[in-house]
């Protein structure tokens, strides 16, 4: 595999996605958009997890919480829009009505901000201690954020919130099907996430991350500011997870804490990189596409619980038998052929 420039790489990725999009559009298969959206969302989550987990070696069990934070920050902004007239005097309300409802790309940025800040905070509190504390704290955080959301009536509490998805979006005089719009946004996010991971891998930052994974004491002795790099990783990783969650309320239409904090997000965002391979950006991509499409296919044929059981068993089996994932297996094959 020869090194490709980032621009070329992004173009290839977008072209692949556009091909899927054109295909689905041509044949009017809305299901294909729904299904691919989910897979793209998993690509973003798995890639985000891997920036911290695979590159730095710090396990985040709270992917679902970061994802849900993104989703709920969108819900909060959408609900805020509905309350403007009640909360503000007329003059201010008129100004706000010009700004709200916020377009989804802005919601995505906002979700990234919220989740990124939470990621930074978690990291700041726990990363100076031994490595496992961070993992435990993220697990506990998922439970607590869910408790907070369940108790927050403004965003629907435990009852959940309905978000009305428009059928179409007017853009420069062209009408775009909203599902296709959401798909395109998620596609863009996936490309950005993969390109970021790829750039990091080849940069000074990527080398620094790898030293943290290998030996933090030695890294410090070589002049690597480990705490700062770990905070960059937790913030970046959290922000991408929040981005993946931000458009979710529009996609699903009805958001409940139980679905936003769904265990499948936490499990899949770990299982996908682990099964694909954690040392390069290709691993999470391969894992997300394989596991993601298998699950899309399987939920139609078998129950979602059986589905998740299979993912869990695969995760356990892979970490025991193939510690470097599918990519590792392929690399080993190639190496053996060479020698």
């Amino acid at each position: 595999m020869k090194a490709m420039s980032t621009a070329k790489f992004s173009l290839t990725a977008v072209a692949t996605g556009a091909l899927v999009m054109a295909f689905a559009h041509w044949f009017h298969v809305d299901y294909l958009f729904f299904a691919s959206y989910t897979i793209l969302q998993f690509i973003v989550l798995a890639t985000a997890w891997n920036i911290l987990g695979g590159y730095c070696g710090y396990v985040n069990f709270g992917s679902a919480a970061f994802f849900a934070l993104g989703a709920y920050s969108s819900v909060a902004l959408i609900k805020f829009d509905a309350e403007i007239d009640a909360w503000f005097p007329e003059g201010a309300a008129n100004v706000l009505h010009h700004i709200f409802p916020l377009p989804i790309p802005v919601l995505i940025l906002f979700g990234a901000l919220v989740s990124g800040v939470v990621g930074f905070g978690m990291g700041y509190l726990t990363l100076r201690l031994r490595g496992s504390f961070f993992a435990i704290a993220t697990l506990a955080m998922a439970v607590v954020l869910q408790t907070l959301i369940v108790n927050w009536d403004f965003v629907g509490g435990s009852r959940g919130a309905y978000i009305i998805r428009p059928d179409n979006l007017e853009f420069a005089g062209i009408e775009i099907n909203y599902i296709e719009y959401l798909f395109a946004l998620m596609l863009l996010l996936a490309v950005i996430a993969l390109a970021t991971a790829r750039v990091i891998e080849r940069s000074q930052l990527g080398f620094g991350f790898a030293t943290i994974r290998d030996d933090e004491l030695a890294a410090e002795a070589c002049g690597v500011p480990t705490l700062r790099l770990k905070l960059i990783a937790t913030t970046l990783s959290g922000a991408f997870m929040g981005m993946a969650g931000a458009p979710f309320p529009y996609y699903i239409g009805y958001l409940q804490p139980a679905s936003a904090f769904g265990l499948e997000y936490a499990v899949n965002s770990i299982a996908m990189p682990m099964i694909g391979g954690t040392t390069s950006w290709v691993g999470p991509l391969v894992g997300a596409i394989l596991l993601g499409s298998a699950q899309q296919y399987a939920t139609v044929t078998i129950s979602s619980a059986v589905n998740l059981l299979i993912v869990g068993l695969m995760l356990v089996a892979f970490v025991i038998i193939a510690p470097n994932g599918l990519i590792g297996l392929v690399q080993e094959r190639l190496r053996r052929k060479q020698s």
Partner: peptide
């Protein structure tokens, strides 16, 4: 600069890349 009593190389990197780290992060 120091060396460690029990060597602590970066296991996932080649020897050359091991040396690249202080060059990137300290000399740089």
């Amino acid at each position: 600069a120091r060396s460690f009593q029990l060597p602590r190389p970066f296991h996932s990197m080649t020897l050359a890349d091991n040396l690249r780290i202080p060059l990137l992060y300290t000399v740089h």
